[in-house]
Nucleic acid binder design. Structure first.
Lengths: 348, 348
DNA sequence: CGGGTTTCTGTAAACGTTTCCGGCAGCTGG
DNA sequence: CCAGCTGCCGGAAACGTTTACAGAAACCCG
């Protein structure tokens, strides 16, 4: 029975005893530093025989880094965040970091708690995707105990890296596309207006409508929660009055769009012949339904990847030198046209 | 400028100096153990002024637990695993554990690495969802350095908690449903046959077909990868010959089913009038398409939740006493009927 | 063979906690 | 007034590593 600590796991001490050398030598051999041939062999044999695995916690304590990163987002149920997790995971994995996932359930206090918990040294850095940016967020970001990258739009004077989507331009892309394919009564199903994405999409919609010479008609704009069922309900409201029926519905995300599509189908309306539907995010859902959904890709994958890269870069540069200036980048939106907005004979 | 360690973060030592007490007292106060009123106040004030946050790494080293759990699954892109992550996350969060996410990309060596890495004490326990169970898996599970719960089917003699889906029964539910609603030529689009789910679904399909007095026709069975595009391709193959066209397609997951649906739509075939389609997993995708998809819920959420609970329970019971016997549970499948398999006038 | 250089090794400190233990002060009761 | 408590406190050890430092061994060369 090998001599081990109470925990049961072999430690560097068990190896030292078995190989009859000091713990310093064990550590050196295990880390590939110089040692006599004989010592190397004895240590390696002992380590193998005991099935030694270095204790990552002890190592972290010693050198002040955990090789863990945290990603905090509102809800893993939303495909957009899944895309981000996926991208971030693949970057961090390649760099030898583990990924800690934190679901904030879109609760502001939870987001703040995550920011403050950077101080507990549980992870070396944080990518956070807040649903809202309050003054408290700004304050917490300023005083963060470690490097942070925000996915979302920050006030300019907050000295933190950020990666944003251009949903204003994205919404405009969709509206112009609908206009160009002959649609004139364009409805808009948006998410909650008090979130950053919600506000931006609204802004994009308004400006693009104006650009196209179309009037912003309150009766054709619905605010609701993100989610398929919400989309269906919103569509019901828009379709209540047959006379003023829209010939296109632009939705603030794909889930809403699928909800709208469902409502249209169950009323016997055809997509795109009677009503065109466009979504946003170009998530895997866009290709799931029928007809396949035109959607504006806001670059979730790209943003996730880039956020992770910024964070890693910041971790690589020693804090002592002139600190890296905060960087902000914007992922360009991309319109992905599919069948749900095909022009109809009569329209085009 | 408060006196702090080189790292910059205040520690228990900084507080002790500022409050003019020993570090032992600081620790006691911070952990709510007894102390004189005066001491408590001084320590708490000093801690607040310095913005002290306890170092989780040091604490972990001391008491041998990290308050982190790991979940390893093949691919976060698959909605089934998203459901699991979500369920696990919510359980672990409630219990005060952080969640470490590990994507194995369905490569066996990666799964094994995760199992072995339990020894580095980075997390207190592991929920793993392997795509295959090899002898090496079994060996790694036997010698795991910490508690593990497997989501999937294990050989009976492996002493590890597991939570399994009953995809045999699940497939049978779907087939019987299709048969009862008048379908007779039932095709089957399955995933890779060398995975556990693939094999089980095949078995379920075969037995149910036999039960219903239908013949298993090789020409109506396609094996492919899981994924929407694979489903579409599979459907193309099944539909190539008009004469032998199936009147129902059962798919091993929702993505395949959506792919099949797409192929059917683009050939102008109607669902469910011409061909019924059923999927599996009842993921969020099932409600995304049109018509909404009949699907067999294999309880991903349930399994994730239960796996997490088993793990937590095992963590709570001290290892010294009689060890908990390994437990195995099976989530019952549930058929969710939607429009995609509605009986047609001529059939029913 | 001895002095200097090089290589290797062991001792000990450090990372930031928690906790055991001995001791001191204050109190109570005889 | 003292023995015995009780309640707090500080010193020190421990968790498992890495690493600075100093000493020992080996080697080279004159």
């Amino acid at each position: 029975m090998p001599r081990t600590q109470s925990g049961g796991q072999p430690t560097i001490v068990s190896i030292a005893e078995r190989a009859e050398v000091s713990i310093a030598s064990v550590s050196r051999v295990l880390n590939g530093l110089g040692a006599r041939r004989d010592t190397v062999e004895r240590v390696e044999r002992a380590a193998a025989e005991l099935g030694y695995v270095p204790n990552a916690v002890a190592r972290s304590l010693k050198d002040g880094r955990t090789r863990q990163l945290t990603f905090a987002m509102p809800d893993i149920g939303n495909p957009v965040y899944v895309a981000m997790v996926r991208a971030i995971q693949s970057v961090t994995k390649a760099a030898g970091y583990r990924l800690l996932l934190h679901s904030t359930d879109a609760v502001v206090d939870d987001e703040l708690a995550v920011l403050r918990s950077l101080g507990d040294r549980t992870s070396d850095g944080l990518v956070i995707c807040p649903i809202r940016i309050t003054d408290e967020h700004v304050e917490a970001l300023r005083t963060a105990a470690g490097p942070v990258v925000v996915i979302g739009s920050l006030p300019d004077d907050v000295p933190v890296d950020s990666v944003r989507a251009d949903s204003v331009a994205g919404a405009a892309l969709a509206v112009r596309h609908l206009h160009e394919t002959g649609r004139r009564r364009i409805a808009f199903v948006n998410g909650p207006p008090d979130t950053v994405p919600g506000r931006n999409r609204d802004e994009g919609f308004r400006t693009a409508m104006a650009e196209c010479g179309l009037v912003y008609d309150d009766a054709l704009v619905v605010h609701t929660d993100f989610g398929i069922d919400s989309g269906a309900e919103a569509a019901e409201r828009l379709l209540a009055d047959d006379a003023s029926r829209p010939d296109a519905v632009f939705c603030a995300n794909d889930q809403l769009a699928l909800g709208v599509a469902r409502a249209l189908h169950s009323r016997g309306l055809r997509i795109p012949e009677d009503v065109a539907v466009a979504g946003m995010d170009d998530s895997l859902l866009a290709q799931a339904g029928w007809p396949p959904l035109t959607s504006v890709d806001l670059g979730s994958t790209e943003r996730g990847r880039h956020a992770a890269e910024l964070l890693l870069e910041r971790l690589r540069t020693p804090d002592g030198t002139h600190p890296l200036a905060p960087r902000t980048s914007t992922a360009p939106p991309r319109l992905v046209v599919r069948a749900s907005t095909a022009p109809t004979a009569v329209n085009s």
